[in-house]
Measured scan of single mutants.
Amino acid sequence: VTLFVALYDYEAITEDDLSFHKGEKFQILNSSEGDWWEARSLTTGETGYIPSNYVAPVD
């Protein structure tokens, strides 16, 4: 499982989006939707859509 880490803070715009803070880690559930990925936060356990350009793979 490839994990991703937030590079910036993000505040949800719609109820389907997931708010997060810089440094938060995610498991990507679906990355086939283009620039918005469905993800689960490993910090909160919540799922929602995140902007793919706000995250990077964890080394």
Rank of each mutant, 00 (worst) to 15 (best):
V1T: 13
V1W: 14
V1L: 13
V1P: 13
V1R: 06
V1I: 13
V1N: 15
V1M: 14
T2H: 11
T2L: 12
T2N: 13
T2Y: 11
T2F: 09
L3V: 13
L3S: 05
L3W: 11
L3H: 10
F4L: 04
F4M: 10
F4T: 03
F4A: 09
F4Y: 14
V5S: 04
V5E: 09
V5I: 12
V5C: 05
V5H: 05
V5R: 04
A6Y: 00
A6H: 00
A6T: 03
A6L: 01
A6N: 01
A6I: 01
A6E: 00
L7Y: 03
L7I: 11
Y8H: 08
Y8M: 09
Y8E: 09
Y8A: 10
Y8N: 07
Y8T: 06
Y8Q: 09
D9Q: 05
D9E: 06
D9K: 05
D9C: 06
D9V: 03
Y10V: 02
Y10P: 00
Y10N: 03
Y10L: 03
Y10D: 00
Y10G: 01
E11Q: 13
E11G: 06
E11P: 04
E11A: 11
E11H: 12
E11K: 10
A12P: 05
A12Y: 01
A12S: 11
A12M: 03
A12F: 02
I13C: 07
I13H: 13
I13V: 14
I13S: 14
I13W: 08
I13D: 09
I13P: 09
I13N: 11
I13A: 13
T14Q: 13
T14L: 14
T14A: 14
T14C: 10
T14F: 14
T14Y: 15
T14V: 07
T14S: 14
T14D: 12
E15H: 12
E15R: 10
E15L: 12
E15P: 12
E15D: 13
D16G: 13
D16S: 11
D16T: 10
D16K: 15
D16M: 15
D16H: 13
D16R: 15
D16Y: 15
D17V: 14
D17P: 02
D17A: 12
D17S: 14
D17R: 15
D17W: 15
D17G: 15
L18V: 06
L18F: 08
L18R: 02
L18W: 03
L18P: 01
L18M: 13
S19N: 06
S19H: 05
S19I: 02
S19Y: 03
S19M: 03
S19A: 06
S19L: 02
S19F: 03
F20L: 05
F20K: 00
F20Q: 00
F20A: 02
F20C: 03
F20I: 05
F20V: 04
F20R: 00
F20D: 00
F20P: 00
H21W: 08
H21G: 09
H21T: 12
H21Q: 13
H21N: 11
H21P: 06
K22L: 06
K22T: 08
K22N: 04
K22M: 10
G23H: 05
G23I: 00
G23V: 01
G23M: 03
G23C: 05
G23A: 03
G23P: 00
G23K: 02
E24W: 10
E24A: 05
E24F: 04
E24L: 01
E24G: 02
E24Y: 05
E24N: 05
K25G: 04
K25H: 14
K25F: 14
K25S: 06
K25Y: 11
K25D: 02
K25V: 14
F26R: 00
F26K: 00
F26G: 00
F26M: 05
Q27G: 03
Q27V: 15
Q27K: 08
I28C: 04
I28P: 03
I28E: 00
I28H: 01
I28R: 04
L29S: 05
L29C: 07
L29E: 05
L29Q: 05
L29M: 09
L29R: 04
L29Y: 06
L29V: 08
N30F: 07
N30I: 06
N30W: 07
N30P: 04
S31M: 13
S31P: 08
S31D: 11
S31H: 10
S31V: 10
S31I: 13
S31Y: 13
S31Q: 14
S32N: 10
S32D: 10
S32Y: 11
S32M: 12
S32C: 09
E33L: 14
E33A: 13
E33W: 12
E33R: 12
E33Q: 14
E33N: 15
E33K: 15
E33I: 11
E33P: 11
G34H: 13
G34M: 11
G34N: 11
G34D: 14
G34V: 15
G34K: 14
D35Y: 13
D35S: 10
D35R: 09
D35C: 08
D35W: 12
D35L: 12
D35V: 10
W36G: 03
W36D: 03
W36C: 06
W36Y: 11
W36S: 07
W36A: 05
W36V: 07
W36L: 09
W36T: 06
W36N: 06
W36R: 14
W37P: 01
W37K: 03
W37N: 01
W37I: 06
W37E: 01
E38M: 15
E38Q: 14
E38L: 15
E38G: 04
A39G: 06
A39N: 00
A39I: 03
A39V: 15
A39L: 01
A39W: 01
A39Q: 01
A39P: 00
A39M: 04
R40F: 13
R40T: 15
R40A: 07
R40G: 02
R40I: 14
S41K: 13
S41V: 06
S41Q: 05
S41I: 07
S41H: 08
S41D: 04
S41R: 13
S41A: 07
L42G: 03
L42M: 13
L42W: 07
L42F: 07
L42V: 08
L42A: 05
T43Q: 08
T43C: 08
T43S: 11
T43Y: 09
T43I: 09
T43A: 11
T43K: 13
T44P: 01
T44E: 02
T44V: 01
T44H: 04
T44S: 09
T44D: 04
T44W: 02
T44A: 02
G45R: 04
G45D: 06
G45L: 07
G45V: 02
G45Y: 07
G45M: 07
E46F: 12
E46W: 08
E46Q: 14
E46C: 08
E46V: 10
E46S: 09
T47K: 14
T47L: 07
T47I: 13
T47W: 09
G48H: 03
G48I: 02
G48S: 02
G48K: 02
G48F: 03
G48P: 00
G48T: 01
G48R: 02
Y49C: 07
Y49V: 07
Y49R: 15
Y49K: 12
Y49S: 06
Y49A: 05
Y49P: 02
Y49E: 03
Y49G: 04
I50D: 00
I50S: 00
I50E: 00
I50F: 01
I50V: 09
I50H: 00
P51A: 04
P51E: 02
P51M: 08
P51L: 08
P51S: 05
P51D: 05
P51I: 04
S52H: 08
S52A: 15
S52G: 07
S52T: 07
S52Y: 08
S52F: 08
N53A: 12
N53M: 10
N53V: 09
N53E: 09
Y54G: 06
Y54Q: 05
Y54K: 08
Y54V: 05
Y54I: 06
V55Q: 01
V55H: 01
V55A: 04
V55P: 00
V55M: 10
V55I: 09
V55Y: 01
A56I: 11
A56E: 10
A56N: 06
A56T: 12
P57A: 11
P57I: 10
P57K: 08
P57E: 09
P57S: 07
V58H: 10
V58F: 12
V58L: 13
V58T: 07
V58D: 10
V58A: 11
D59L: 11
D59R: 08
D59W: 12
D59A: 12
D59S: 12
D59T: 15
D59K: 10
